[in-house]
């Protein structure tokens, strides 16, 4: 039987993957696909910054789920450029927060 507290990583991996597919399918051009994945990378970077000194692996798996979903659903654009932009967005966002250039609330 499905137990949420034990399988939450797999659950959110699946949900976020579906979200990635839907987002990728809604992008009308390669340029917009690249911008969306860069922004998604920034969200991922913020999330990894949040978990800097806490358990990371489930979060990284969930983030990877979004990227996999996006790669499955993307119609326009090169797969490698998408992966690179996602990583660049993540690193940029992480650095901005780590160097205290940006501060915000998580909730």
């Amino acid at each position: 039987m499905f137990q949420f507290y034990k399988n939450w990583m797999e659950f959110f991996f699946f949900i976020v993957m579906i979200l990635g597919i839907i987002t990728a399918l809604s992008a009308p051009s390669a340029f917009i696909s690249y911008i969306i994945i860069f922004l998604a990378g920034m969200i991922a970077g913020r999330l990894i910054y949040e978990r800097k000194r806490k358990i990371k692996l489930p979060y990284i798996m969930i983030i990877a789920g979004f990227l996999i979903g996006y790669l499955i659903g993307v119609y326009y654009g090169n797969v490698w450029i998408i992966i690179i932009l996602f990583i660049i967005g993540g690193i940029l966002s992480f650095r901005l927060y780590n160097n205290k250039i940006l501060r915000d609330v998580r909730f």
Binding site: T23, S26, A27, I32, I35, I36, L39, A40, M42, I43, R46, S93, L102, R103, D104, V105, R106
Partner: peptide
């Protein structure tokens, strides 16, 4: 306090 998750989600929604 700015909310980056919200702003980025809003941008993604606008582009999509």
């Amino acid at each position: 306090k700015m909310w980056l998750f919200g702003l980025l989600s809003a941008l993604i929604a606008a582009f999509a």
